[in-house]
Design a protein around this nucleic acid. Sequence first.
DNA 1: CAGTATCCTGAAAGATACTG
DNA 2: CAGTATCTTTCAGGATACTG
Lengths: 113, 113
Amino acid sequence: MRQRRSNCPIACTLDLVGDRWTLLVVRDLVAGKTRFDEFLASEENIATNILSARLKLLEELGYIARKSDSIDGRRVRYRLTKSGKPLRRLVREIADWGLKNLPKTKLVSGVSD
Amino acid sequence: MRQRRSNCPIACTLDLVGDRWTLLVVRDLVAGKTRFDEFLASEENIATNILSARLKLLEELGYIARKSDSIDGRRVRYRLTKSGKPLRRLVREIADWGLKNLPKTKLVSGVSD
DNA sequence: CAGTATCCTGAAAGATACTG
DNA sequence: CAGTATCTTTCAGGATACTG
């Protein structure tokens, strides 16, 4: 987690999730992915250590929850918590901006759902 | 400018402005600041080289325009261009999320105007 | 499957001095 | 005032090997 530079909500938000990976993990969660290897399979090719770190960060912040699958206990599932749900809107807005302002961007799966 | 990892609008947006500084400069523009030293004066203490680089990036992307002051030609003014205006909403949404989800954050000046 | 552990590197950040 | 130029440092990212 990065340092808090001021009490500006924008600066603080950027200190938490202002990087190239965190919100992509959230995007995948929003899109319905729940497992480590599903996140890994995304186009952007996130490295295992980076993904691991981001999941940990999001869990520490209380935005996602980690749980063993009820059927196959070796499987792990991640989901957005209630506290994490507002991130959906943020991700949607970013997607929106990208779609409108960046040529050739295309939304693959259900973020806008 | 960073590499484009995929055509996902979220990934592409993050590749452009997904860092700790760029959107803070936009915030200041939205708040009505126009001059180099006004940006410098913000609480977060951005370094001159970083600010310079971000202004250049935003100008290259066409989101801001640089212009000599009509009265004092030595003064430079920056403003959001028409293409840059949609960034206001993005910044507002981020501010919103921060205000609602991060304790003790407080908006100082006119981003929500 | 779901990670952890290392190692390595480049890029970004930060500090500071300087200039037209 | 509005930057540029350097230098140094840090650290996030990326690659890869390994494990319960």
